[in-house]
């Protein structure tokens, strides 16, 4: 790992200032960034830890919205979102392993936008709002491709606001070595329709499976998607699975998610 300066501000305002330096990078829990630094795939001049910022911590439900601070760790979401949004808590409780969940944060996951990460599917399927230090971004506008988001340089995910669905479920077909999603499908049912988001499968990162959404909005049952097949075009092919295999899994996992959501 190359050398860098390290800062740990205690407010968002101070972190924003610290991130103005050229080649400064924000550090969440570091569960992706630290291995990346060890591989010398990144060489920031300065890391700005966001883990000391109290205003970016915590889970709170208010009316129909669950708000999670950007620096909130997966283990905390798994425990504290369980009553308000059980499907989201279950997703958080299935990320990586216990040690990863005690460090990794929701803001870090969404800022990185790994094409196989779990949280992007929940944010997109829930129509969540990504709150940053300077604006609010709808999930539909936020995810812009593999490892690409609407965030500007130095912009910090300070919170995520999830509309709480009537029913929801996340099904992850785990890649057993990394425990990332080989394919993951998040289904969320709202009064005005159903949203289905798929992670792990597409070369473009997380995406909405709109055909399934239309079918499920009329009839929220596994049978409604039984006849649908996701296209293998643009699906990831690697040593873990072909694009056709991943496309097949999208259908299977969507049915399972709908069945589990009830």
């Amino acid at each position: 790992m190359y050398a860098f300066d390290f800062e740990k501000p205690t407010s968002v305002a101070d972190a924003v200032v610290a991130l103005k330096d050229e080649d400064a990078l924000a550090l969440g829990g570091g569960q992706t960034l630290i291995p990346t630094l060890k591989q010398r795939l990144a060489s920031p001049s300065k890391l700005v830890s966001l883990m000391g910022i109290a205003e970016m911590q915590g889970v709170s439900a208010d009316g129909g919205t669950l708000t999670i601070g950007g620096g909130t760790k997966h283990a905390v979401v798994a425990a504290e979102a369980a009553s308000a949004y059980p499907a989201l808590a279950a997703l958080a409780g299935g990320i990586g392993d216990p040690a990863v969940r005690n460090r990794g944060t929701i803001g870090g996951s969404l800022a990185n936008n790994d094409p196989a990460a779990c949280y992007p599917s929940a944010a997109l399927a829930s129509g969540a709002t990504i709150v940053t230090d300077k604006r609010e971004i709808a999930a539909d506008d936020y995810f812009q491709g593999m490892f690409t988001t609407a965030l500007d340089e130095g912009e910090i995910v300070t919170a995520v606001k999830f509309p709480i669905p009537e029913a929801a479920n996340y099904q992850k077909f785990e890649q057993p070595a990394s425990r990332f999603a080989l394919v993951g499908v998040f289904v969320a049912k709202y009064a005005d329709g159903v949203r289905v988001a798929v992670t792990g499968a597409s070369e473009e990162g997380v995406f909405r499976w709109t055909e399934a959404e239309e079918a499920l909005s009329g009839n929220f049952s596994p049978d409604a998607v039984a006849g649908l097949a996701a296209s293998a075009d643009g699906m990831i092919t690697d040593l873990h699975g072909s694009g056709a295999y991943r496309a097949h899994l999208i259908g299977v996992l969507t049915k399972r998610a709908v069945a589990a959501a009830g």
Partner: peptide
């Protein structure tokens, strides 16, 4: 492994299990 996979470096920080190869010492201040 030094790649955050194996857990041989597991310790507790403030009572929580973490991989000490995937956390900076300064974060444990």
């Amino acid at each position: 492994c030094d790649t955050s996979q194996c857990g041989a470096c597991t310790v507790q920080v403030d009572g929580k299990q973490v991989k000490s190869c995937t956390m900076f010492a300064a974060e444990a201040e």
